[in-house]
């Protein structure tokens, strides 16, 4: 058993990070995917995660979304533990109820959109606000229309996903996640399943979010140019660890570590 007293019950004070991974470990059976991961994301910061396939990038986001349980360490969101809870002054593993209460701070967009196929675009956006947040239908509709407008999908609001292109579906998925008003948005390779000509319509939406909204964002991407453009910080993952991180200009322009250099030049050749 891990000694939980090494972890604070909460983080407070100025500069409390919006997201904080502390010594987080994730293993699938004998396969250790992430070990001793420390990662902090400040409020309003846009952090990109890059790295080779299998390095654990998706796993980082999935743990934060509570889609995967962690095996050690603690994740904090907005200063309060997400994966654990305070039981008489000791951190214990979170109950489903605790997860449900805390996960509302986080929203996620997936590589394959995962829209609900039996609902129209606007129904997809209204689902959470009505049934989870308890908004009235009218309130949820207003909020959803506003967001569909933001992502440029208002004209198609009554279409089912099967009638939409990949880029359009992804934009609806972004609106759906935003409708829950999360503090942290997670994007897992949201353009990887798209045809090249529609990638721009999705990245432009993310650009708009970065410039106009004070959301904290974590984005896994294979688009180095995009990551360089919009991130405050880039983390290069290698073999379940952060091999190198820094401002995009530094990491892309002047990578310090050999593995980062190798990865970036391999990516450059592939383009």
């Amino acid at each position: 058993m891990e000694d939980m007293s090494a972890y604070p019950l909460e983080i407070s004070g100025d500069g409390t990070p919006m997201v904080s991974f502390q010594k987080v470990r994730k293993a699938y059976g004998p396969l250790v995917v992430l070990d001793n991961l420390d990662l902090e994301v400040a409020t309003g910061e846009m952090v990109s995660i890059i790295g080779p396939s299998g390095s654990g990038k998706t796993t980082v986001l999935r743990m934060l979304m509570t889609l995967e349980q962690i095996n050690a360490g603690v994740i904090y969101v907005d200063g309060r533990p997400l994966t654990h809870m305070d039981k008489a002054g000791v951190l214990v593993e979170a109950t489903p109820k605790h997860l449900r209460a805390r996960r509302s701070d986080i929203g996620m967009c997936f590589q394959h959109f995962n829209l609900f196929p039996h609902m129209t675009a606007i129904q997809n956006c209204m689902e959470g606000p009505v049934h989870v947040l308890g908004l009235t239908k009218a309130e949820a509709r207003d909020r959803s229309e506003e967001l569909l407008e933001l992502v440029g999908m208002i004209e198609k609001k009554d279409q089912h996903p099967s009638r939409l292109s990949g880029g359009q579906q992804q934009r609806v998925a972004i609106a759906r996640a935003l409708a829950m008003r999360p503090k942290v948005m997670l994007f897992d390779e949201v353009t990887s399943a798209l045809d090249p000509e529609v990638i721009g319509e999705v990245t432009n939406v993310i650009r708009k979010l970065v410039s106009e909204h004070n959301l904290t964002m974590l984005m896994v991407t294979h688009q180095m140019g995009f990551a360089r453009d919009i991130s405050d910080r880039v983390c290069f993952f290698y073999d379940g660890k952060i091999e190198e991180q820094g401002r995009p200009a530094d990491l892309f322009g002047n990578p310090k570590r050999e593995r980062t250099q190798q990865f970036l030049s391999a990516v450059k050749e592939a383009v």
Partner: peptide, 18 residues
Amino acid sequence: VPKGQWEAATALNMSTLQ
């Protein structure tokens, strides 16, 4: 029903019953 549908529902913080 694909696993992604369950995950999307979790990401929207829906309960198991919902």
